[in-house]
Design a protein around this nucleic acid. Structure first.
Ligand code: FES
Ligand code: FES
Lengths: 138, 138
DNA sequence: CCTTTATCCTATAGAATTAATAGGAATTTG
DNA sequence: CAAATTCCTATTAATTCTATAGGATAAAGG
């Protein structure tokens, strides 16, 4: 399960991708996506620090995607907000951490399964870009 | 990410699958799997209520799988311990709940992607049985 | 029957994470 | 200068996670 934070980030970025190149304020995004305004602000701030969006302050300011919509994947976004997508850290390439309780991880059947799971998840999330999300539905 | 509870449950059941038909005490499982003993007890208790294991009290008591190892999937176990495997409840067949913030879920691109993710995850977790886990490695 | 070894049950508690909100400083436009 | 907006730092309430504690209940074996 992903957090609201990650879901909201995906929604916000998808909205920005739909209105490509236009300045869009947090307020506008919050309304269009039904996202709590102040919460969204902190999320956008993080996305800005991570260079996914560019911001402009002041009246008629707002946010714009920092890259092409097809250069940002859902996997990128989820990892930024929630951390690794692998079900266990011992199966994560990006956030690997050893399981204290497993003696030999090479022989761990659960880890092996979780690596397959991660791969399956990745085959969806790391292939779906904001462009894909933006063009479907509403 | 899954919880320790789910991971420990998988480990415990895999251990039971390896020693098929033998009574195995919580103590023995805890040692073999490096699982905190008291925590494991509560987990086994839950697995018993859910009819995955059968228990026998008293001296020389312990736990045995209630079904054939190939009749219990990793997906079953994880859902019991952690709930739905879908990344969002709006994409979960087993634990469906509407997203308050999305107006029309049929047109929601994120939901669609999460349904694909769930399916991908399911294609691993719902096909891997305790038998599969038991026969690999140690 | 008594001791040992287990499961079983209920409660508790600290830590971490999540999901926000608050309040105001800094900046830009017109 | 006024209005709109991002930016920054804290704080909080609720929930979930990860266990541990302590004892009641039951079975086996001598
Ligand atoms: S090594 Fe992580 S579950 Fe065994
Ligand atoms: S319906 Fe759940 S994310 Fe849109």
């Amino acid at each position: 399960m992903i957090t609201n934070k990650a879901k909201y980030a995906l929604k916000a970025l998808t909205i920005l991708a739909r209105h490509s190149k236009q300045q869009f304020s947090a307020q506008q995004i919050a309304e269009e996506g039904n996202i709590p305004h102040k919460f969204l602000e902190t999320i956008l701030s993080e996305l800005k620090n991570r260079k996914l969006v560019v911001s402009r302050r002041g009246s008629s300011g707002g946010y714009v995607l920092a890259k092409d919509p097809d250069e940002i994947t859902a996997g990128d976004v989820i990892r930024m907000m929630d951390g690794p997508i692998a079900p266990l850290l011992c199966a994560s390439p990006t956030g690997y951490r050893r399981c204290e309780d497993c003696e030999d991880e090479e022989l761990c059947a659960i880890r092996k399964m979780m690596m397959d799971s991660r791969k399956a998840l990745s085959s969806v999330l790391d292939k779906r870009t904001l462009k894909d999300l933006a063009k479907f539905g509403r």
